[in-house]
Design a protein around this nucleic acid. Structure first.
Lengths: 236, 236
DNA sequence: GTAGAAAACCTGTCCGTACACCCTTATGAT
DNA sequence: ATCATAAGGGTGTACGGACAGGTTTTCTAC
């Protein structure tokens, strides 16, 4: 881990724990170079990370102001796995493996996100996610067999991300996603206990590795009444 | 405009127009310093912009690969105004001024996005947005009178963002937003021709200036069947 | 006392250099 | 022919300095 990442870690945790409350100023760049014994560029890199993750707003001639920064978004944003999200919010969560099989990638669901998709063999994992013991999300992941030849049952039951990154050493880089609202299907109603005429929020995402290989295709169907998506954007 | 922004502009437009197609490599950092007569740091700043806007993926030891990058997201993402969005997609769009009045900020709608909100006087602007001559979105903006004392009717009918930035010289910096799904209200059904029992996607956002003043509060109610939100995220 | 100018401090941009690490290709020994 | 190694070119990180331009504080002149 680079120096600037350590500075970032330290500053972000001090913002989280209230050492630097919302509205206060962080130490100036010059002070940071002294406190952490780094060059100004390194300090600025750490501040840049804080900036685009919504921790601070830099004001020319004044300094870096801590701004309020939401931490409880659904795992749609900022590309975190369900397990990481559950751990972060500390809610009572569990998930149940519904299906675990092999199939061809359903092109239609993802072609609006990724052009030039080929029909490829995938492993499909369907899981039902519970929040506070209520079924809230149906996740269906398609993983390219050409990238991940097989998945242990245990990884499918706990965390796919962890398996990809830690066990296989894959470097997950970015993801593009889409959110729509659809009427609940029969299977949605059954698994999530929905009445007829209810709706679900559907997020579809394509996740790629650092070498730009799109390898993970996910469709996530959320109970509309439990669905909240949060986002932070800058105008630049 | 800084040098690195000009390099960014040039590279991004060349990606958009196909000079650098998806999958190809951009010139190396060294070549960029020569082509544009800039230092490596300046070239790297331009590449960093391309990276976090989803134009490219940098691969260590290889170069910068152009990745496919969606441009037709709804104006929820990346903080663009409706007018900018309409212009970008080139769809047939118009909007209709429904209400233009003064009121207190409805705290309840926004308190999950911004803590410590005070009840303040605002100008409220409600507009109905049409896509392809179909009513699709109801936008209701609350603008703090302490920041924007008055709004000409013409600005409310065309573009508030343009008025804030170009006429008033306000620097819009960032925004945090939230998406939920709700049953359509009576007013939704009336304005957007919805049947009973239908749903709307509601995006709520708080927009702040560079000095961190939250000044614009927007509630956007979308016909569920026309709502698509697109996003691009990176894994740290 | 007050207004205005200067100083001090802050961030933004740009430049140059150095070295580590990664990937591809060419080289050369076997 | 094959395979290990070296070389070259690529990005990642870190350091240094310089100047521009914004904000706040201090000080000076009136």
């Amino acid at each position: 881990m680079g120096k600037y990442e350590r500075v970032y870690q330290d500053l972000s945790s001090k913002i989280d724990d209230g050492t630097y409350p919302v509205g206060s100023l962080l130490p100036s760049e010059k002070q940071l170079t002294e406190n952490y014994s780094v060059s100004r560029e390194t300090a600025r890199k750490a501040l840049a990370l804080l900036t685009d993750r919504g921790y601070i707003q830099k004001i020319m001639g004044k300094g870096s102001v801590v701004i309020s920064h939401s931490q409880y978004a659904l795992p749609v944003s900022s590309l975190v796995s369900y397990k990481e999200f559950a751990h972060a919010v500390g809610a009572s969560t569990r998930s149940e493996l519904i299906d675990f099989s092999e199939t061809l990638l359903p092109l239609a669901s993802f072609k609006s996100l990724a052009k030039d998709l080929q029909s490829e063999e995938t492993i499909a994992v369907t899981r039902l996610r519970f929040f506070d013991n209520e079924p809230a999300i149906i996740d269906r992941d398609y993983i390219l067999k050409s990238v991940v030849p097989s998945i242990p049952q245990e990884a499918a039951e706990t965390s796919l991300f962890e398996y990809f990154e830690n066990t296989l050493g894959l470097s997950i880089a970015y993801s593009s996603k889409q959110i729509k609202v659809e009427p609940a299907q029969e299977s949605d109603r059954k698994l999530m206990h929905l009445a007829k005429g209810e709706y679900v929020a559907v997020t579809t995402s394509v996740t790629s590795l650092e070498d730009t290989t799109a390898f993970l295709f996910t469709e996530s169907r959320h109970r509309a009444d439990k669905f909240i998506y949060q986002d932070f954007a800058r105008r630049r």
